[in-house]
């Protein structure tokens, strides 16, 4: 499929159609078995492992000419990884791109879920470095596969137990393990645990691609996703003392930004699109441009 003269040397979305077919099959199987890691024949991509090759292949397999793509890295549209992947897809698909969560039909993400609630017409594609949640304690792939197959997940709680024993609380703050639809324990990729509740009963389809590890897994829309915990140490998300310094949002995930070499800092939305929208809507944090002007 060739939609643009400039793309003569590439097939649409870079991958050949047989490869897409193979990946789509893996995706369909992953959707059919929520949380189960489906092996797939991961291809060499024109970027190094660790740069999102798994996510890129998944996106390439599901994207069509009418899609609108958004790419984020740690919530931001303008960081190197996001910019280069977005540029890659513009070049090989010529589809519309956006930074707006609302307008996107496909959002490829590294390490965040957008603050805005996603809808049924959207697909969230995660870049996954290590798909196996049990690997920390059981390095043998043969054994972890068996443990998944037989639903032997005691080990997962051993990890959380160790956390509490060492730190007095569950100190895992990202890649926090979840149980999907009461069956498979899954690594949600290194998103902050703050985002875990957003995966639960999400209206959007969530796809996970691990390029180096050659695994794809998925959470279909409206699927139960429960974060593992103990009765006396229940799962809880991070809370932030102050609202976003730029848009005054609360209940969102904030990044720390160092302002100078004297220890000044501010906390701002990690989701840049969300922050921008709020500021456009007239919300102002204490370090926003308007607020500072008003002070002067």
């Amino acid at each position: 499929m060739n939609t643009h003269g400039e793309l003569a040397t590439y097939n649409f979305a870079y991958l050949d159609e047989q490869t897409k077919r193979m990946i789509r099959r893996a995706i369909l199987k992953a959707i059919a078995i929520p949380g189960y890691q489906v092996p797939f024949a991961s291809r060499e991509m024109p970027m190094p492992y660790g740069w999102g090759t798994g996510g890129v292949q998944v996106t390439a397999a599901v994207i069509g000419p009418d899609d609108t793509l958004k790419v984020i890295d740690q919530g931001a549209d303008d960081t190197t990884n996001a910019v280069s992947i977005r540029a890659f897809f513009q070049k090989v698909t010529n589809v519309a791109v956006t930074t707006s969560t609302r307008q996107a039909t496909i959002i490829q993400t590294r390490h965040r879920i957008p603050e805005e609630q996603l809808g049924e017409n959207q697909i969230l594609v995660y870049q996954v470095p290590i798909p196996e949640p049990l690997r920390f304690l059981e390095p043998r792939e043969t054994e972890t596969r068996k443990m998944h197959a037989l639903e032997e997940y005691g080990l997962m709680h051993v990890k959380l137990y160790e956390d509490i024993a060492r730190n007095g609380h569950i100190a895992t703050t990202y890649a926090y393990p979840v149980k999907v639809e009461g069956r498979y324990v899954m690594d949600p990729s290194p998103t902050p645990k703050f985002d875990n509740p957003k995966m639960h009963m999400s209206q959007a389809l969530q796809l996970f691609g691990a390029g180096r590890e050659k695994r794809i897994y998925a959470i279909p829309p409206y699927t139960e996703v429960v974060s593992l915990d103990f009765e006396d140490h229940p799962f809880e998300v991070q809370t932030f003392k102050d609202p976003c310094a730029l848009c005054a949002a609360t209940g969102v995930y904030l990044d720390e930004v160092i302002l100078d070499d004297k220890g000044s800092r501010m906390f701002v939305c990690s989701d840049t699109d969300h922050c921008e929208n709020r500021r456009n809507e007239g919300h102002h944090g204490h370090l926003s441009g308007q607020a500072l002007e008003a002070q002067q």
């Binding site: 005691g154 137990y161 509490i164 024993a165 006396d232």
Partner: peptide, 24 residues
């Protein structure tokens, strides 16, 4: 590489014990 407590507690967690204090 995990604590003595977790070594002993693993079987309990495997059969569904979910109370950290009790396991410990």
């Amino acid at each position: 590489t995990v604590s003595a407590g977790a070594n002993v507690g693993e079987r309990l967690m495997a059969i569904g014990d979910r109370h950290y204090g009790d396991i410990r």
